[in-house]
C-alpha cells in the first residue's frame, strides 16, 4: 500500500476539523466525528521505551468507548471537576499526516501532534505524541472508528484528558 495524496488530504481535513473542535470546545461536534462503536485509546508507558499494547491485560492512560467519551464531556462541561475548572485554552498542531487505504471502507492514518495548554494560574504545558486513526467511509463521509494516542511524556505534568492530547 503506497502513500495516497488525495486520501491523505481528505483524512487530514478530518483530523484538522477534530483538532479545531477541541480547541474551540465544540464538544458535541467533536463527538459527532466518532462512530457509534468507536474506541479512543491512549496507551501507558512501559519501562523506558515501550507502551502498553493490550488494553485487556495492560493498563492504559485512557481506553474509552463512546459512552466513556460522553462521560468525559459531562466531566468537562459540568464545571464540577476541580482540575478542569477553568479549562485551559489549547492549541493542537497536527502534522506529518499520511493515509493508507486498502480499497475497503477503512483507512489507516498516522500523524504527529503537539498540544500547548495555557491556564492563567499554571505554567504552560507542552505535550507531544503520535496519532494512529482508523477512519471508516460511510454515506455521510469519514468517521473515526478508532483513535490511538501515544503520549510521549513519561513524567506527566497537569491533567490529561481527551481535549489536551
Amino acid at each position: 500500500m503506497s502513500f495516497d495524496a488525495a486520501l491523505t488530504a481528505e483524512a487530514a481535513d478530518l483530523l484538522y476539523r477534530e483538532a479545531g473542535h477541541l480547541d474551540r470546545r465544540e464538544w458535541e461536534a467533536w463527538l459527532a466525528l466518532y462512530a457509534e462503536d468507536a474506541v479512543f485509546w491512549a496507551p501507558a508507558i512501559v519501562g523506558d521505551e515501550g507502551f502498553s499494547e493490550d488494553p485487556d491485560n495492560d493498563v492504559s492512560l485512557i481506553y474509552l468507548d463512546r459512552a466513556g467519551l460522553e462521560a468525559r464531556i459531562f466531566r468537562i462541561e459540568g464545571g464540577d471537576s476541580f482540575a478542569s475548572t477553568p479549562l485551559p485554552h489549547t492549541a493542537h498542531l497536527v502534522s506529518n499526516v499520511r493515509a493508507v487505504g486498502a480499497g475497503g471502507p477503512e483507512i489507516e492514518v498516522s500523524a504527529t501532534w503537539l498540544v500547548n495548554s495555557f491556564r492563567r494560574t499554571d505554567p504552560p504545558i507542552l505535550r507531544a505524541g503520535r496519532y494512529a486513526y482508523t477512519l471508516r467511509r460511510s454515506a455521510s463521509g469519514l468517521t473515526i472508528a478508532r483513535k490511538t494516542v501515544h503520549v510521549l511524556d513519561d513524567r506527566i505534568v497537569g491533567p490529561i484528558d481527551i481535549f489536551n492530547i
Partner: peptide, 9 residues
C-alpha cells in the same frame, strides 16, 4: 503488578 505505569507531578 500489571504493565503500564505512570509518573506524574
Amino acid at each position: 503488578v500489571l504493565k503500564g505505569e505512570s509518573t506524574y507531578v
